[in-house]
């Protein structure tokens, strides 16, 4: 919003400079940014090149610099690796599940903190803020032992339950409810006889939808890319998630068939890139608010 008004007013005031047809500093800006763009896009490009070449092409000199015709051949070998295919589905359902739980619990708590009055509310929310910057989760051993004691090793529970609702999610959803849901709407719903859950479901949720989408994408990114805990608790190859499967693929094929590893890596990357490109504006507009996540 602010950026639109700013560019608008700048446009109106600087008629003097607008007459010049070529603005050298804008050209220089584009040159600098384009160099950066090429550097940042390059690893993606190189991944595509390697995933579509044969291993001998990758290891030849000079190496192949443009995408080749071998993608389906490589990808076929990835598909022959049942662990990888299974991991793809594991990642999809696990990500969908954790995102759904996070969105539900965080938005419910956020709504309560933002719009309901009850004793101790502000102190409890203060506690949420403190835990937001508290670096818990760095102690691996006790968590591991607790999961073991609960019988959760070699299961998905450690990846679902402990992070089911995060301090960041609650904070994020409270901000959304504070700024997007006017008190009058809540009062009107109460006068109409809507109860606690009904108000949350039919009044609050539709009004905070953009923030839900943004939090959903963040959570999807975190679960899809999570590495440390899946590595520690998932012992059975049938349970692997994609990051673990790629690591295994690298271990199994790394020295023999590099292009297969690259094809698998490329395929594992595409869903999130597609999702991000589809919801680009929502993500980009909301990232600034997530600065607190750290």
């Amino acid at each position: 919003m602010t950026s639109i008004t700013r560019t608008g007013s700048a446009r109106g005031t600087s008629t003097r400079t607008r007459r010049r047809p070529i603005r050298p500093n804008l050209v220089a800006t584009h040159v600098v940014l384009a160099i950066g763009l090429v550097l940042f896009a390059f690893p993606f490009y190189w991944l595509v090149v390697m995933a579509t070449s044969s291993t001998s092409d990758i290891f030849s000199f000079p190496p192949r610099l443009i995408p080749g015709p071998e993608f389906f051949n490589n990808f076929g070998q990835v598909l022959a690796n049942t662990t990888f295919v299974q991991a793809f589905f594991n990642s999809i359902w696990l990500t969908a599940l954790t995102a759904t739980i996070q969105l539900f619990l965080a938005s419910l708590a956020g709504y309560v903190f933002a719009k309901r009055r009850f004793p101790g509310r502000d102190r409890l929310f203060g506690l949420v803020l403190v835990t937001l910057v508290l670096p818990t989760g760095v102690a691996l051993v006790p968590s591991y032992q607790i999961y073991a004691g609960l019988g959760w090793l070699n299961s998905f529970w450690p990846l679902i339950i402990p992070s089911a609702v995060s301090a960041f999610g609650v904070f994020w959803m409270r901000q959304a409810a504070v700024s997007a849901v006017p008190d009058e709407v809540i009062d009107a719903a109460a006068i109409d006889g809507a109860g606690f859950l009904r108000t949350y479901w039919t009044v609050v949720l539709p009004m905070i939808r953009p923030s839900l989408v943004a939090l959903g994408i963040f959570q999807i990114m975190w679960t899809w890319n999570d590495y440390l805990w899946p590595l520690l608790v998932l012992g059975n190859p049938a349970q692997y998630t994609l990051p673990i499967a790629i690591q295994q693929l690298k271990g199994n094929y790394g020295n023999v068939d590099y292009s297969v590893v690259m094809a698998g890596t490329l395929v594992a990357t595409l869903p999130l890139i597609a999702l991000f490109l589809a919801l680009r504006r929502t993500v980009l507009d909301n990232v600034a608010g997530s600065a607190v996540k750290g």
């Binding site: 950066g36 896009a41 991944l47």
Partner: peptide, 16 residues
């Protein structure tokens, strides 16, 4: 373009 790497898994980044 600059934000896209953020969406990418660290595992992928490491492999590439």
């Amino acid at each position: 373009a600059f934000f896209l790497p953020q969406v990418t898994s660290l595992v992928v980044v490491a492999v590439v």
